[in-house]
Design a protein around this nucleic acid. Structure first.
Lengths: 187, 187
DNA sequence: AATTTTATTGAACATCTGTACAATAAATAT
DNA sequence: ATATTTATTGTACAGATGTTCAATAAAATT
């Protein structure tokens, strides 16, 4: 006895495949629900039984991607929080490599006509990973709200990634790592 | 002889007013072009003569807002770039006050179903203001790409604002200023 | 294997979208 | 004031959206 009805699994798989197929030829914003359903050979009403927007389908993928990011982080950020020292090892920061690995995907996530949802998922995950690591290696500073601090740090990294995206992801991830280390050591 | 045809001015005014009226009762994403046109008593075809999405109308407002942000910045960021010193004066950082002033507006800009466009406009403006000020007070550091650095700094601030937004803009702008100063002096 | 539960289907409906075009009205220019 | 330019209107059309409902088919349960 399976948790989820087999029909649901099949339907979702068909919709997933259809979305990926269509994404090869046109941007997310211009893909309609009708189009996905025609491609997946699924009744349009069935789509609404599971999702309410095209973006909901995309979000399912994105959440899996966030797991990959979390895995990339096993050791990672640990050293970044030692911001006062110069002992930073660029190779421990994995987020840039994660983005590089899925850059075709992130071209969608960062495109301007797409809703903020995905950006926020990335932000929250980065923040969570930072916080998790910071609480081990970073003693709370008098008067600084940990939430503001984590949001500051996490979004600063995302700022570099936005810049990277605007440059068409030209540079290698290692360059971003080096830049980050230099910026952090500046202070 | 005016630059722009009077009919265009009237049409745009009517559409602007209609959008603002509708925004009092429902979120941006659920306002249709048809609805705006009915409210503005403008033919729907006329809408497409000037805009192509509801968001284009909203963007017109937002660009005016960015001018207010630029004005808030006259002196501002200047001191923030002296990140190594402790001489930071919180009252010189105006962006948080700008957000506070238009917080009802920014509740829309930061809501998750809205496209990234507005976030990017805010990001670019913050980055521009930072860069403008930085080139006067900050000598370029060997090996640091000014673009990555500006993107890092600008988006870090926006990270704090996202956190603020998630807290429902509860704190006063001055609290954000103080937090930022403490974070900058940390390093 | 028979029964029960539930996901999917197809059809229909009002509304919205994006586009086109001729008719009209309101600006600007002479 | 008249002529010219151009923005707006009304109408129409094919396709998309979001929802509802009874009929059907495919699972899970006994």
């Amino acid at each position: 006895m399976s948790q989820v009805d087999l029909r649901i699994i099949k339907t979702k798989e068909a919709l997933h495949t259809a979305l990926l197929t269509l994404l090869k030829n046109k941007p997310l914003e211009s893909i309609s629900i009708s189009e996905i359903c025609r491609c997946a050979k699924i009744n349009r009403g069935t789509f609404y039984l599971h999702y309410s927007q095209v973006g909901d389908l995309f979000e399912e993928y994105f959440r899996e991607m966030m797991e990959d990011l979390a895995n990339s982080y096993q050791e990672p950020y640990r050293h970044v929080v030692k911001i006062k020292t110069s002992e930073l090892d660029p190779s421990t920061i994995r987020i840039f490599h994660h983005i590089e690995k899925y850059k075709e995907f992130y071209r969608i996530v960062f495109s301007k006509n797409v809703p903020l949802t995905y950006y926020y998922l990335l932000f929250e995950e980065t923040k969570r990973l930072f916080t998790e690591d910071a609480k081990e290696h970073f003693h709370v500073v008098e008067g600084i709200d940990p939430n503001f601090y984590a949001s500051y740090q996490a979004n600063a990294i995302l700022g570099m990634i936005i810049q990277w995206y605007n440059d068409g992801f030209q540079q290698k991830a290692s360059v971003l790592n080096e830049q980050l280390v230099k910026i952090l050591n500046l202070k």
